[in-house]
Simulated scan of single mutants.
Amino acid sequence: MSLSASPASTALDDWLAQATVAPEITALRPDYRALLIVADGLVPGPSDEVSERLLAEAERTVTERYAGGSYEDDPHVRAWREAFQAAGMKPKRTRPSADALLRRVPAGLPRINRLTDIYNAVSIAHAVPLGGEDLDHYRGAPRLERAVGDEEFATVAGGEPAVETAAPGEPIWRDDLGVTCRRWNWRQCVRTQLTLTTTRAFFVLDALGAMDDEALAAAGEALVRGLTEASPGVRTATRVVTGPRPEED
C-alpha cells in the first residue's frame, strides 16, 4: 500500500499490518516485541516549550529513579546489552539506543527538534529503545531481519553524505530502499530521519522480556499523549508485532 497521499486512520492500520519480524530475530530473542505507532497530522518544528517541558520532566524522573544507583542496573537496559552481545555486537561500543541516551542524562540531552525531543523523553522515562522515522520517506513495509551484508544504509561521514552496508547477521530495520536503522536500534539512517518538516511519522518501541506488556503499553500511551499535546489534530494507529513462534513454523 502506498502512503504517498494523506491516509485515513484505516490506511495507517493497513500499513502497520504489513510490518514483519523475521524468524531469525525470534530465534535470537524469543521475548522480543515491537510496539509500532504511526502518527499523521503532526506539527513539526524546532524544540519548543512543549517538547522542552516533556524532556526536562523525563530527565528529572530518570535522575530521581536512579539516585544512589545506576541506570546500568535497570533490567531492561541489561537485557538489551545481552541481546546485542548475542547478536555479535559489542554493547559498550555500539550501545542500545536507550542505554546511549540514559548515560547522557547527567549532562543533559541535546535538544534536536520537537518530535525527536518528545520520543527521546519517552525513551529515557521508560528505559525503552525508541526511534522515529519520517513516513513520507519510507518505501514499502517495515521489517526487522538479520542483514545479508549488502543492504545500503544512508548516513553522514566527516560531514558528508555517505552510504555504508550493514554487517552480515546484524539485526536491521529496513524498507524497500535499504536499512532504516542499524544494529536493531543503534543508529537511524538520514533518509528517514525526523526533520523540521515532518508531518507523518513511524515510531518503533523495542521491548524484551524484562519489560512486560503493561509497561510497553504504558510507554506507547506516553508517546501518543506527548504527540497529541504537541499536535492536537494528530491521528495515530498502533500495533504490537512479534516474530513467528516455533509452533507457527
Rank of each mutant, 00 (worst) to 15 (best):
S70D: 15
T61A: 08
S70V: 12
P161M: 13
V38C: 10
L54K: 10
A107D: 08
S123P: 03
G108T: 08
E64S: 15
D13P: 01
P30F: 08
L3K: 03
A27G: 07
R114M: 04
D31R: 02
L205M: 08
T94P: 00
G226M: 07
P246A: 10
S4N: 06
R60Q: 04
D136I: 08
S51D: 08
A218Y: 03
Y71E: 12
W184G: 03
S9G: 08
A100N: 13
A39P: 01
T10S: 11
P246H: 14
G149D: 14
D249A: 15
P7C: 07
A141Y: 03
W184Q: 06
P244Y: 07
D212R: 00
P91T: 15
T197W: 08
E247V: 14
D213Q: 05
R245F: 08
E52Q: 12
P30S: 07
T116D: 07
R225A: 13
R81V: 09
P23Y: 04
D134V: 06
M89R: 02
P46H: 15
V62H: 11
R33Q: 14
A222P: 02
A127L: 02
C189M: 01
R33D: 11
I25P: 01
E248T: 10
R114L: 06
D13E: 14
D73W: 05
Y138N: 01
R78E: 11
L3N: 01
G131E: 01
T180D: 13
A17N: 12
R78H: 05
A125P: 04
R78S: 09
W173F: 14
D176I: 12
L12D: 04
V240C: 09
V241W: 04
D136M: 08
D176R: 15
V156W: 07
T198S: 14
I118R: 00
R95N: 07
L54S: 04
L54I: 06
A5T: 15
A8G: 14
G233R: 11
P246C: 10
D213A: 02
Y32V: 09
D175C: 09
A218D: 15
T26E: 01
T10N: 05
T228D: 03
R33C: 06
T155G: 13
G140C: 07
D213I: 00
P46D: 13
R187M: 10
D40K: 11
M1C: 05
P75H: 11
G159S: 14
R53T: 01
E57D: 12
L216S: 06
A22K: 06
A87H: 08
G226W: 06
T155I: 00
P129V: 05
V128N: 08
R235I: 02
H76P: 04
Y71I: 00
E170I: 02
D13Y: 02
V241A: 11
L101K: 08
R29Q: 10
G243E: 07
L28M: 13
Q193V: 00
L227W: 09
V122K: 03
D206Q: 12
S47G: 15
K92R: 04
T197N: 10
W15Y: 15
E145W: 02
T197G: 11
Y66Q: 14
V190P: 00
